[in-house]
Amino acid sequence: MFKQVFTSALIAGLAAGALAALLQFTFVVPLLMEGELYEFSDRVHFREGQIGSPRLAPEIWGELPRHFGTFGSNLVTYTGFALIMVAAFLLAQKFGKRIDARTGMIWGLAGFLAVNLAPAFGLPPELPGTASAGLIARQTWWLFAALGTVSGVALLGFGRNLGTALLGTVAIAAPQLVGAPHLDAYYGVAPPELATLYAVRSIGVAAVAWVAMGWLAGFLWEKSEG
């Protein structure tokens, strides 16, 4: 039992973390480092006398140790996500739910909704240097959104009547209706096009990593049933 849980979770989590990191290096980190040019005023958007700023991401591979950190912390984060998801596999299986690659993809998609999309609905992924509300307040709301959405999706997915569906909807909606903590003014220094592309790419990469992780974890889980 331990072997099935930990083998599926570790392999799927490490693979998803590596995939997420590679996709981030390709699609996200160049934008993040371009954003840092504005964070540290190496570039100033609409500097006096200038219209616009160059659309030009810096070369990212000059800072190799930094990217080792990014790679490693993606492995740790996604392995953490995988352990929680696979623990839930075992619980669901005890209630007669089938776990395989196909249902695993749905689990992964649900994880993405809860951990990335729902929190991003209130607190979109931010370029470095974005001024925002207090860290503790944002972390608290993030957890509220993620846990509320997990509970809501589980109630909608496994509930059998209108009451549980209604309760699930409330759990998903409540954090968003309460609202994420924000400052009362906009302080963005980076071009909005850059910040938008950065946010959407971050969310897109997470979607791919989660669905791949769900698929692989489900596949491994079914294989190890024997």
Binding site: S73, A120, W142, A206
Partner: peptide
């Protein structure tokens, strides 16, 4: 699982923050 996610995504330790900085931003952790 929660321990790993906390360490990489939420811990206020300066070392954890510095190592995980880019992945925190990219995953959307505050």
């Amino acid at each position: 699982g929660f321990g790993l996610v906390f360490a990489a995504g939420f811990s206020h330790s300066a070392t954890a923050h510095d190592i995980a900085h880019d992945s925190r931003h990219a995953i959307g952790f505050p």
